[in-house]
Every structure is written in C-alpha cells, then in structure tokens.
C-alpha cells in the first residue's frame, strides 16, 4: 500500500491566514481566517494546535507546501520562515506555490480566474489562471500592476477573486507546485524591488 503523505500547508501572504494538515488527499484539519496584522501571534499556535489534535509531530511531516507570495511582505515572511525552518531542521521536502494560485484554487467553476492581492498605492498582485477539469493552469504570468489596466488588456471572460479558502486537492492535482531543491535558498516571491533599491538605481 502506498504511504499517505502527511502534509502541512501554510499561506500568510494576504490578510487571511491559512493553515491545514493533510494526510494524502484528505484534509485532517484547517484554519482560514482574516487576521488583523497578527499572523505572527496566530500562525505558530495554530500549527501547534493542528499538530496536537492530529497527534502529529513536526518530525512526522513528509511535506510542507508554502505560499511564497506575492503579497504583504511582513505577513508573507512569517509563513515562509516557519516553512523554511521546519524544512531545514527536519529535512522535510518543501514545495512552494504562488499565493495567487491558492486563491484561484478556491473557485469551483470552470473558466478564467483573476486572483488579486492588494499591493497598496493603487496596485495589485495579479495573474490569470484557468480552471479546467479540476486542474489549475497559469495563463498569464503574475505581475504587479493596476487592476483596471490589467483587466482592459484581457479579452476573455473572467472572475476576479480577492479571497477564498485554498482547495488543496486541486492544487495537488495541478502543476503549480515547485519543489525547493536547496532549503537555504527558499525566500518569498516579492515581485517588487524595495523603494530604496529603485531610487539607488535611478540615481546612478
């Protein structure tokens, strides 16, 4: 019999904090709630609670799936550093997934989905996905731009989605996961240089 993988899934890139435990394709327990800039207080207690109620230790995990953004930087880093530390400390396979793909996965119907994460100053993190036969496909590469501008360049029918509980079964079914080969190199996908770096470049 094939061993059922124990998986921990984390995404802290948006206002919503998502944590779940899976055994094979089966959800054991999950958390999906809007936070108040408090992912740092909420994430680790929630992971501990889920592990405790499922009688699983960190060292028992076979795989960690981490939403690597794009998204709100401080929140995003909290999930990524936890996944990185677990992966490094216990030598667990870590797979990264776009936080936009996680939002898109929540949409049940067939068709095009435009997941959107607020990036402030009138901009959003965006990417066009397609849901087909319970599989998620990235159609247009993710970028940081104005939502309305992005929309006018699209010719297809689509649904804009700013939140939604990730559908991990669909994520596992699609080709949106990327295995992290060297855990030390795991970092968030910021999709944007810092203001300081940009100013330094323009002043050169």
């Amino acid at each position: 019999m094939k061993k059922l993988l124990k998986r921990l899934i984390i995404d802290s890139a948006t206002k919503h904090l998502y944590v779940s435990l899976y055994k094979g394709n089966q959800e054991l327990t999950s958390y999906y709630k809007k936070g108040n800039n408090d992912h740092s207080e909420k994430l680790m207690p929630e992971i501990k609670r889920q592990l405790d109620t499922s009688n699983i230790q960190v060292s028992d995990l076979d795989e960690i799936i981490i939403g690597i953004g794009p998204g709100s930087y401080t929140g995003l880093r909290i999930g990524v550093v936890v996944a990185k530390m677990f992966g490094w400390d216990q030598d667990i396979t870590v797979k990264e997934v776009s936080s936009l793909a996680l939002i898109a996965s929540s949409y049940d119907q067939e068709g095009f989905i435009l997941p959107e994460i607020d990036a402030r100053r009138g901009n959003s993190f965006l990417g066009l996905y397609k849901n087909k036969d319970n599989k998620l496909l990235l159609i247009e590469k993710e970028e940081l731009t104005n939502l309305e501008t992005y929309k006018t360049n699209l010719t297809c029918e689509f649904t804009v989605l700013s939140e939604g509980k990730p559908n991990i079964t669909k994520i596992l079914n699609s080709s949106v996961l990327r295995e992290v080969k060297d855990i030390h190199t795991l970092t968030p996908n910021y999709l944007r240089k810092t203001q300081a770096e940009k100013s330094l470049e323009t002043n050169k």
Partner: peptide, 13 residues
Amino acid sequence: LVGINGAKAFALS
C-alpha cells in the same frame, strides 16, 4: 518577526 518566527519554529520542531 523573522527571527521570532524562525525561533518559534525551531523550538516547536
């Protein structure tokens, strides 16, 4: 927050 959450993860692990 990077150090704190890294430390918490190490402690729990």
